[in-house]
Design a protein around this nucleic acid. Structure first.
Lengths: 146, 146
DNA sequence: AATAAATTCCATCGTATTGGTAGAATTACT
DNA sequence: AGTAATTCTACCAATACGATGGAATTTATT
């Protein structure tokens, strides 16, 4: 309504913000700790929201942190080794259009009659593999290149 | 919690049911009208839910219908000409991870500082193009092959 | 004309997710 | 002690998702 075009995108803001934070931290690698507030301000991310996101990234081992005065965040892995697929998996779940082709958390489709002969499964498997490939190839390093 | 693994998939049930209905109708092509109730029963789709989905498909021109006694649905396009990308677009929106790379409904990212130099845009464009390609290549006909 | 069978249309509804906020607790340096 | 930072927990509004219910309409058959 009211002239507003609703646009559905496949990636959550959480995931996008996580990627932006990682790219930011990768750029500052070796230059000491980075404040959440700085990332938030420079990347236009609500600070309190970003806090949560950085915590998730920390628990998953992508970033490290130091508490207290002079603290902050820093990246812990080489930028080439962290892919969009990894971060998508962490925040937005499986890279699969249907549960029965999910790599990590396979689940049978509730409405499936016979998985063995299901041609949807076969085709969606192909789609997933292609999508996963390109998302795996795109790393934090890819975003750093000019 | 409680041992239940939440699995997030990228495609809505609406979209999946729509594809299943189209495949079903494609199989019955030339054999007269198909009842919603039959599709619902054979494909394990809630009937009232399926009704809505078929209406959307009808308005978009993918199926036709006949009201009243002896009525039902039938497919109106060649199975090769309807792709997963088309149906995904109709029910689940853009095949794009971020709004600024969406083909149909482009929108500027709210948190973007400069779209021209944005490397996320560049990389997400690549991802979208790959994903779109494979989803475009997969048609209703693809699912019919044994 | 009545009936039955089907689509069509519209409204509602519970639950989960999303995106974000608030505030207190903790840690560590000065 | 005070200050600056992360950490943790809870909460909240808006929206999407996955349906369900019921009435209206159309059409073939009896």
């Amino acid at each position: 309504m009211s002239g507003f075009v609703y646009l559905q995108t496949m990636m959550s803001k959480k995931c996008k913000y996580a990627l932006k934070a990682l790219i930011y931290l990768a750029r500052k690698q070796g230059k000491g700790n980075v404040f959440t507030a700085d990332i938030a301000a420079d990347e236009n991310i609500p600070k309190k929201f970003l806090e949560q996101i950085l915590l998730v990234l920390k628990r998953a081992g992508y970033v490290g942190s130091q508490t207290g005065y002079g603290g902050g965040y820093f990246i812990t892995k080489p930028a080439e080794s962290v892919s969009v697929a990894d971060i998508h998996r962490l925040f937005d779940g499986a890279i699969a259009l249907v549960p029965c082709v999910a790599f990590d958390y396979y689940q049978q489709c509730a409405d499936c009659n016979d998985e063995v002969t299901c041609t949807m499964r076969r085709e969606f498997m192909k789609i997933k593999e292609q999508t996963r490939l390109v998302m795996k190839e795109t790393s934090i390093q890819s975003f750093l290149e000019p």
